[in-house]
């Protein structure tokens, strides 16, 4: 494509907040077909920056109970391996463990998933991606964290680059301990999660929305090059 460049990149000033801005996020002066020019700021213009809102459960108790039951029986897992534990997830779907029995299915897109499995240690870089994916899931959504790394840092507890406590960055419903937990432990984790959902305790999404500022502050504390909108719709 021999495409004429119809834009001009505006170099950002050297202020602190622009320190980690990547070139593709620089503002640019764009020439419209009619010759007018205007500024496009990728970070503001390409993304919706609305904050998440908590969604109240259904006011009718019975209905909510029924829906919670349905949610618990139909858990769609986001197939996004974040750490070493992702290798433990695949056997779940094989005949030996067959998580389908419990209504657990894998889904390749966050839009349709309900459960995000953080499978082990999270470096800061991965955390950023994990947050994006989590925010792209629709409420109600759940998080299951595998391994001691997500609980207290595990063997990476003093690493310069690995987080220690996942629940400071996103609400966690179930921790499955172990290094790494075996698929059986994961199945047990699913059972625990289902129980929680049925009890109406699976309100992680609302928790996240309600304490949004706190979570964001924690995330931003360690993710220094925050070159994305505050909430990834």
């Amino acid at each position: 494509m021999a495409e004429e460049k119809n834009y001009k990149i505006i170099q950002p000033d050297n202020s602190e907040e622009n320190k980690f801005l990547k070139p593709e996020n620089y503002k640019r002066e764009v020439t419209a077909p009619d010759g007018n020019t205007f500024i496009v700021d990728p970070l503001n213009d390409y993304f919706c920056d609305a904050k998440p809102q908590p969604h109240a459960p259904n006011t009718i108790k019975v209905v909510e109970k029924f829906l919670n039951w349905a949610r618990s029986q139909s858990i769609w897992v986001l197939g996004f391996g974040t750490g070493c534990g992702s290798i433990e997830i695949y056997p779940l779907m094989t005949p030996r463990f067959d998580a389908y029995r419990f209504g657990v299915q894998q889904r390749p897109t966050p839009r349709q998933s309900n459960l995000m499995i953080i499978s082990g240690y999270l470096s800061v870089k991965t955390l950023k991606r994990a947050i994006r994916s989590y925010e792209q899931m629709q409420s109600p959504k759940f998080v299951m964290a595998l391994g001691s790394c997500t609980i207290n840092g595990g063997m990476y507890w003093d690493s310069y680059n690995t987080i220690n406590r996942l629940d400071h960055y996103m609400p966690v419903d179930v921790y499955v301990a172990g290094c790494m937990p075996r698929p059986e432990a994961l199945l047990a984790g699913f059972m625990e999660l289902k129980k929680r959902i049925r009890e109406g305790k699976g309100e992680g999404a609302n928790q996240y929305a309600e304490n949004f500022d706190w979570y964001k502050a924690n995330q931003k504390k360690i993710i220094k090059d925050w070159n994305m909108p505050d909430y990834n719709w």
Binding site: I151, N152, G153, D158, S159, Y160, T162, N164, R165, N218
Partner: peptide, 22 residues
Amino acid sequence: PMRRDFDTKKYSEETYFPRPGR
């Protein structure tokens, strides 16, 4: 961070919310 004068434990404790009790 790989320089030996960088104290990774201190950094981690300051940054990553160490879980008390560990």
